[in-house]
């Protein structure tokens, strides 16, 4: 094993991970409490809010597996605790890999974990991953209050348009992620279509039988179904 990997897997970094995990959990609990109290004040019911909490948690399980997959791919190069921490804190697999790559490149090394990826190059990767997230944290901490006030002004003038506006913005973001499998074709496209068909099926069931509990799980079910389809269809796209 490389010397730097022994360092990277040192217990001290696991300890940092536990600290960060506690901070994230604390923030989540504080916001759940605060929003619950405020929600009751403005007329939301307990069951509405509990249902939202439950469905969000359940629907996050399957997509979170993609982080575990990315994590496992990073372990051979960066050890266990550092990818764990980086993927939990303002993390996304593409960003971390790109930042780690930039850190290595700045030292004249192409690629992660190969020959020449010394302890110093590794340290530069870690510094780069951390330095890159300064800006977003800085901007949100300093300016979110002001940005929100500005947007709220627009919203008060025409609330109905603001609703359509937000839905349109969501559609804009997600269309990017829908477009990639469409343009690549093959198994990703087949999986995308399977997901869409299953979700449509669930929507029909929900409308016909008024099964509101299904609403909470439809996303998870249709994702799992689409993933299962990708296993069954894989041999046709090999």
């Amino acid at each position: 094993m490389n010397y730097y990997l022994t360092v990277a897997n040192s217990y001290i970094f696991y300890f940092c991970g536990v600290l960060l995990f506690s901070l994230i959990a604390l923030q989540a609990v504080l916001y759940i409490r605060l929003n619950y109290q405020e929600g009751l004040k403005i007329g939301l019911t307990k069951s509405q809010m509990s249902k939202a909490l439950r469905s969000a948690a359940v629907n996050s399980i399957v997509p979170s597996l993609s982080i575990v997959v990315a994590f496992l791919a990073m372990v051979p190069v960066l050890g266990i605790p550092i990818p764990w921490i980086r993927l939990s804190f303002l993390g996304s697999a593409p960003y971390e890999l790109m930042a780690a790559g930039i850190g290595a490149k700045a030292m004249g090394v192409n690629g992660l974990g190969g020959n020449g990826y010394t302890a110093e190059v590794f340290a530069n990767s870690v510094w780069t991953m951390c330095l890159g997230s300064i800006w977003a944290i800085f901007m949100v901490s300093c300016f979110l209050g002001i940005i929100k006030k500005r947007y709220a002004k627009v919203g008060r003038e025409d609330p109905r348009w603001r609703n359509t506006f937000v839905n349109a913005a969501f559609v804009g973001v997600f269309s990017i992620f829908i477009a990639d499998p469409v343009s690549s074709g093959g198994l990703p496209l087949a999986t995308l279509i399977s997901g869409a068909v299953l979700m449509t099926g669930f929507a029909i069931l929900i409308a016909r039988f008024r099964t509101s509990w299904l609403k909470e799980f439809a996303l998870t079910f249709s994702m799992l179904g689409a993933m299962l389809m990708s296993i069954l269809l894989a041999k046709y796209f090999a």
Binding site: V62, F174, I178, P188, T191, L192, G195, A218, S230, A234
Partner: peptide, 20 residues
Amino acid sequence: PAFQQILPALFGSLGAYYFL
């Protein structure tokens, strides 16, 4: 394949939701 196709599975389902 199932784990490589998590994102298409997610966005296919979500895309249908918005389309409907």
